[in-house]
Write a protein that binds this DNA or RNA. Sequence first.
DNA 1: CCCTATCTGGAACGTCCGTTCCGGACTAAA
DNA 2: TTTAGTCCGGAACGGACGTTCCAGATAGGG
Lengths: 192, 192
Amino acid sequence: MPWEKNFDREQALGVAVDKFWSCGFEATSMTSLLEAMQINRGSFYDTYGSKHALLLEAIDRYVGDRGADFRRLAKELSPREAIQAFIDWIVSPPNVERKSWGCMALNLALELAPSDEEVRQRLQNAFSDHRKYFRDLIDAGKECGDFRSDLDSLATARSLLAMVFGMRVFGRMMASDREMRSLANQAMKLLD
Amino acid sequence: MPWEKNFDREQALGVAVDKFWSCGFEATSMTSLLEAMQINRGSFYDTYGSKHALLLEAIDRYVGDRGADFRRLAKELSPREAIQAFIDWIVSPPNVERKSWGCMALNLALELAPSDEEVRQRLQNAFSDHRKYFRDLIDAGKECGDFRSDLDSLATARSLLAMVFGMRVFGRMMASDREMRSLANQAMKLLD
DNA sequence: CCCTATCTGGAACGTCCGTTCCGGACTAAA
DNA sequence: TTTAGTCCGGAACGGACGTTCCAGATAGGG
């Protein structure tokens, strides 16, 4: 029917996330984006407004999805296990092709933070939330005996996030599984 | 004289390093590059060949300079002090405006690693060298009593490098000095 | 059965990209 | 004084960029 788009807005957004994730913002051309999303130029600008507006939606989607993943882990597992599972998920992501994509938020942060205030704000908030997830888990772990009670939860959460960033860089540089596993072990030592 | 360029090739290269460092590769346009380097288009292509060739030179310059900095620290200080000084140098770089530029090698790695084989190779080697610097210092520190003798120097050096990457990301996201200092302290704890 | 509303596909736009090219300026050598 | 060689400055190139625009297709509503 002419008044219904013949593509799924949310699914196409997911495809865009993958493109921005793997290629970055500038290096993703509109042509390749439209081809991947299977949308025509006209429909694209009617639906999403602009490439930059799409980027913001893609960031929100990515950040939202990762937050949901994280909360699921935190709910199903003990604090230590949840953090371990998160770290392991970086070493061996469920979707194998994403292993060398790193973290979309991190990639975009380094690419756009200096020039794009709007993007930087969003990503700073996302990183701040992520640190809070870690901190809450660490605090919970201190309660239940998973972690030493004199652990500085804020500083530890921050360093854990920094180490995750580092692992993401190694991942994007196609480090071997052996190296990634070693880093994962070292990361967990931050909690001792 | 007509057979002498009226600009300093090496100094102009230094300006290019700063541009690539702060803005990245794609986002640095030839126009802004030529303006910053104070060179004209003709002279540029005569001298450096192309934007990409200049990038490779810039990477070599950057990596060489950082390596020299590092070796100087290693020579003048004890192993633990040298690592501490390196970490402190990230928190408070000698050139204040570079504080929010992060690490040029890291920025370019995330921007170009997936698409530019030549750049990735160079940066992988640079990172591998950097890890070796750390490892040698750790081994030396084990000898002289700075570090515990049962420390795994390879794994520790790698995790230290990952933590440095993380700090660089925080830096480029304009983290506060307080946060950066906290991260520096946590990084040093990897050596305990 | 026409009208209207919506989405589709692609032509076309102006801009900026990295790069090439060449006439003019200059000075040491012949 | 002419010549040769080098660099300078800027015009111009082809192509790719993100974006705009519009005719064509479609199918329910009147």
